Amino acid sequence: MTLVEPIPAGDFAVATTKDSVRIERLLPGPIERVWSYLTEQEKRRRWMAAGVVEMQEGGVVCHVFDNSRLTSRDDHPPAKYAALDGPVKSHGIVTACEAPRLLAYTFSEESGEPSEVRFDLSESGSQVLLVVTHTRIPNRAAMLSFTAGWHTHLDILRDRLEGREPELFWPKHTRLEEEYGSRIPII
């Protein structure tokens, strides 16, 4: 049996409305370093997704998620997410870009009713506060999945920035999705 580290209470996301969630992470700076992990494909692929993000309003976003290969030890999604085993593309349009403090874009344009993700960065001494706000989430199941996903991805980002090997994506996501099911009220 593998022991799992308890999740710090401050790391949990909060639902701000029935279709929005907000999650924060205090990360090692400087701000330009964290910005590069949001905007540079090779760095972003190490914690979230590869693909192009054109850094201007109206620019194209094409994320290529491969959550089963974010760590040095491959893992596979649970049956519920079997369709996500391997590269999965998500498209969007940049809605705001103010380097190195703000990046926002639509998410999953291919769904017909895209949501929107916003990354706000601010300096806090030698650290950087990263706030991710995901809005226009279509339903509770998507909210639980996205929230567990952001939580897991941001923990991987923090581990990468601190030089640690992250926990496997899918086992952590599964645990967190269940936890968020009890934390996020039905609004």
Rank of each mutant, 00 (worst) to 15 (best):
T106K: 02
G112V: 08
L129T: 00
T133W: 02
S115L: 01
R136D: 15
A141V: 14
G125W: 04
D120L: 10
Y81G: 03
S111P: 05
A141P: 06
T135H: 08
P100V: 05
L70A: 03
D75C: 14
L130I: 13
P77M: 07
L102F: 04
E109F: 00
E109V: 04
E123N: 10
E98N: 08
V128S: 09
A96D: 15
L130T: 02
L70K: 04
L103Q: 07
A99W: 08
K89M: 13
E110K: 09
P77W: 01
L84R: 04
N139G: 05
G92Q: 05
S108V: 07
G92D: 08
G125Y: 03
A99Q: 10
S72D: 15
I93W: 00
L70Y: 02
K80E: 15
T95I: 11
T133N: 03
V131M: 09
A96T: 14
P114R: 01
P77I: 01
S115E: 04
L70F: 08
T71Y: 00
R140L: 10
L70D: 01
F119E: 01
L103K: 02
V131S: 13
E116V: 02
H134L: 09
E110D: 06
V128I: 02
D120F: 01
E113T: 13
C97R: 00
L102N: 07
D120I: 05
L84F: 15
S90F: 13
N139Y: 11
V117G: 01
R118L: 03
F107Y: 15
L130V: 08
L130H: 07
G86C: 03
S124M: 11
A141F: 11
R73K: 13
T95Y: 00
T135F: 00
R101D: 08
H134V: 00
H91N: 15
T106F: 05
V94H: 02
V128C: 07
V94S: 05
